[in-house]
Write a protein that binds this DNA or RNA. Structure first.
Lengths: 317, 317
DNA sequence: CACGGCAGCTGACAAAAGTCAACGACAGAG
DNA sequence: CTCTGTCGTTGACTTTTGTCAGCTGCCGTG
């Protein structure tokens, strides 16, 4: 591997400093370089995952509310991000919590699926640099056009980079203009194989989309506002990995869904750990649908969302 | 869980400092405590595994020699600790490398087996504090009497403590004075179950013992020097988890071995990752035997030992 | 062979973190 | 009610770390 002498020195510096607990000047003396270089190498070591510093996300799974939500909704893990305290901006906090929680759940050799959206991109952005070995990051849904700087392939690529993993992108548009073309493309071996491989993921990360006029699908032109409204009247309540789902979290039977290139919901349900991250309060109904539909096993939400979900389950269902 | 307000504060401080990258004085302001307290909390967080700082052990698996040894002996992982460079005391280095490598191999939910010896105790002593969840550490062999401060149960307990894991000790002597008593004890449900559970470990850590007059078994009186010499003439070359093995790494057929309470070699071979750590050059022959006998999948040795092994395999076998 | 550009290293200074003696709150004993 | 010991906290000081402008030496180019 790294016959690079510099890499070697970075490793040595990191080893002496972090594992042996030497001071930087001692490390410098050992390696016959200046202390300033040691400081620089150590920064590089942290940035490249040679050294990993991780904080337990227990803080957010600790409360009574989290436990109640797990029990009530039958989830395997719940992280609750407080909004009340003057502490920190919750908008900035949630992606960090999600990134930490997600990273904790990954083991070496895992294949992880990543969907797309503002939320997922924010998570990618604060994902810690770690050096997991043999991890593969696969893209769960096709790509969207230009207007966004958080396209599906970028989420995948960035997360793969941070985890020192292989990133596998899905080179296809998310939505095509005809069902025939979509079907034909889905039949292409490259695409077919990649989509088939999704059910062998051990972990997936996604958010859920709404069907309002400002939803991604409308904003990027995949559907017009009018079409979306019509679909809403027909029962659509949210978007999962680019596909419309109804109130029970089942795939809508509509032309749009047949024009989408993306993981099918069955494959997603087959993934053992399905981590859903929801930032906005407005996504309540889509979230409820996704949970009903078995698309969520691990959940990251705000305190208020957690309360709403709990109320809903205790009264409604 | 931790309703302890102090623990909570430690978590928060660690989160803000390590995950958000705040300075200590900023953290202090946020939590309304002094910066000195923050510094103290952070130390505690590191010591208890709330934050984990780990350095990749790649440095030691990188060389050509390590790769050659893997190929030649059919091992799954080799770490080589250099002695030559004026760098560091290799005696102090090897346990650190082993501890790091071992920790990297553990995943949550794993059951790990730990044997005993000076080497294993040194490893326990520098094992990093990490907060793996649902890990169980089981003792692979019975206990020895007083003269040692690195008894099997202490190795197990210490490693369990560092990993925040459950430690399961084997409450039985390593060697009994009659075969009958040993057989009866092995038949006790508690003992039998624990020994049976060993083959479900996913990971084991041990060293190999020699049969010289200064070996543990002789020094603690389990065997007299004369008996050991006789067994050596009969073909014994080393000690694995308290049992004598021959040059092929097979269990010796002798009374002593029938008086030992310990994991049997079959169970050990069934463990997917068997990490062997050898510090002393004198353990060459026992090590060769253990490798031959399929008792090693991951190996931590010095450069010179690695060379000797490679020579031996290229010429001899 | 001289020259510009570039990458990487260093020295010196500024910022941040570690340490510790002393202080204060609190509990239990007299 | 006061005294005393303990524990956790703090401000002030020291040590360690981060940073950055400038230096050095190397390589490709004219």
């Amino acid at each position: 591997m790294a016959i690079r002498p510099v890499e070697q020195t970075i490793h040595k510096a990191a080893w002496l400093y972090y594992t042996h607990g030497m001071r930087q000047d001692e490390v410098a003396k050992h390696l016959n370089i200046s202390r300033a270089s040691v400081a620089m190498y150590l920064r590089k070591a942290r940035e490249t995952g040679i050294v990993t510093i991780s904080t337990s996300s227990q803080l957010f799974t600790d409360g009574v509310l989290a436990r109640e939500l797990e029990d009530a909704l039958g989830l395997d893990g719940v992280w609750i991000v407080p909004e009340d305290r003057s502490a920190l901006d919750p908008a900035a906090e949630m992606p960090t919590v999600a990134a930490t929680a997600f990273t904790e759940k990954i083991s070496r050799g895992d294949r992880v699926g990543v969907a797309w959206g503002r939320t997922v991109y924010h998570i990618a952005d604060v994902m810690p640099y770690v050096d997991l070995q043999d991890v593969t990051v696969v893209q769960l849904c096709g790509n969207l056009g230009a207007p966004y700087n958080y396209r599906p392939d970028q989420c995948t690529t960035e997360i793969a980079r941070r985890l020192n993993a292989e990133g596998i992108n899905l080179y296809a548009p998310l939505v095509l203009s005809s069902e025939e073309l979509a079907a034909a493309l889905m039949d292409e071996p490259v695409i077919r194989e990649q989509l088939a491989s999704i059910s062998s993921c051990s972990l997936a990360l996604y958010s859920v989309g709404g069907i309002e006029d400002d939803s991604h699908l409308v904003k990027c032109g995949a559907l017009s506002a009018a079409e979306m409204q019509a679909l809403g009247r027909a029962g659509a309540v949210g978007v999962m990995a680019g596909r419309l789902i109804d109130a029970d979290g089942q795939l809508m039977d509509c032309s749009y869904n047949r024009r989408v290139i993306s993981a099918d919901l069955g494959s997603i349900r087959a993934i053992p750990k399905r981590m859903m991250v929801v930032e906005q309060a407005a996504k309540f109904l889509p979230l409820v649908a996704a949970i009903r539909g078995g698309l969520v096993s691990h959940l990251v939400v705000t305190t208020s969302m957690a309360r709403r979900l709990l109320d809903h389950w205790n009264t409604g269902a």
